[in-house]
């Protein structure tokens, strides 16, 4: 597989907790012979909990460098304190690690060169073997800054892994919101699946994430999860956005999503005779096939 031929799909939501991760987990289980799964929600990565890696290879991720003041040289002149716009230097001239954005302004302006910029491991990423194939996931260290960079790294590694494994698709689980990590999970992808819920908050956040997709000219398809919580708003989502962002499927509320999570399974992997659950499984298979078809991978 040539890297250029590999397609990428990101699942996003705007609002958190709409079911993004549970739905991508099921899609990944369905497409396990075709796709590599990348968990790009780097400060709340959960997919590894479902797919329980049999083996994991971990790598340090270096984010932006951070400042360190050499206390033996420091004369406490205060220039760094005045220079830093991120309030990352304490009154006793220590760098507050969680506030330092790595701009290096203090380093350049210290009159006696007492401030060094040191490499900083801001997280870790993993290539794991799971029952559904390779999973690339990461963990940003608490309070770290470089989430967008780590997302980019996870995507890069997932793409290389897809190439090595001869898979033609990377499925990317994005973060909530519309900011830096989300943008980093969307740059250059072929398609976005937006998982939303029919609540006023869900609608509001959907509207914003769709504006972002329009700016980036990424084709997006909407999944309304738990549509029967409020059918009126589900209807409004359809009528307001359908023209630019088609609705692919509407999934009903069902406790099986949480139940499956507790059993460490994706919903697709749950064995059941329950008609409603079977119906949901069918919807997920159709959704997976829809993605393949749109990307012309349905040979």
């Amino acid at each position: 597989m040539n890297e250029g031929d590999i397609r990428q799909v990101t699942v996003i939501s705007g609002k958190g907790g709409t079911g993004k991760s549970t739905i991508i987990a099921s899609i990944a289980a369905c497409l396990k012979d075709k796709a590599i799964l990348a968990d790009a929600d780097v400060d709340a990565a959960d997919l590894y909990l479902l797919f329980e890696p049999e083996q994991s290879e971990g790598f340090d991720f270096y984010g932006l460098r951070k400042a360190k003041i050499n206390q033996e040289l420091c004369t406490e002149c205060g220039i760094c304190l005045e220079t830093c716009r991120f309030e990352a230097i304490s009154k006793d001239f220590e760098v507050i690690q969680t506030r330092c954005e790595g701009c290096a302004a203090c380093h350049h302006l210290c009159p006696i060169s007492a401030i060094d910029m040191l490499d900083n491991v801001s997280g870790k990423y993993f290539i794991s073997d799971t029952r559904i194939g390779k999973l690339v996931h990461a963990k940003l260290h608490p309070g770290e800054e470089s989430s967008g960079l780590l997302v980019a790294e996870v995507r890069k590694v997932a793409k290389q892994t897809a190439e090595n494994q001869n898979r033609d698709l990377v499925l990317i689980d994005g973060s909530p919101g519309i900011g830096c990590p989300v943008i980093s999970s969307l740059v250059g992808v072929d398609m976005a699946i937006i998982v939303t819920e029919p609540t006023l908050s869900g609608y509001h956040d959907l509207d914003r994430i769709l504006q972002l997709l329009e700016q980036f000219k990424i084709p997006g398809y909407i999944v309304i999860n738990r549509y029967d919580i409020n059918e009126e708003i589900a209807q409004k989502i359809e009528s307001d956005f359908e023209n630019t962002f088609p609705i692919v499927t509407k999934i009903p509320y069902n406790p099986i999503f949480v139940q499956a999570m507790i059993e460490k399974k994706s919903v697709l992997e749950v064995e059941t005779e329950d008609k409603d659950v079977l119906q949901i499984k069918k919807m997920i298979i159709e959704l997976s096939n829809f993605i393949l078809k749109k990307l012309k991978l349905d040979d």
Partner: peptide, 14 residues
């Protein structure tokens, strides 16, 4: 606060 545990959350709780 925003969700997550990265810089926006840290800024919020400072």
């Amino acid at each position: 606060a925003p969700p997550g545990s990265a810089c926006p959350m840290v800024e919020t709780i400072a």
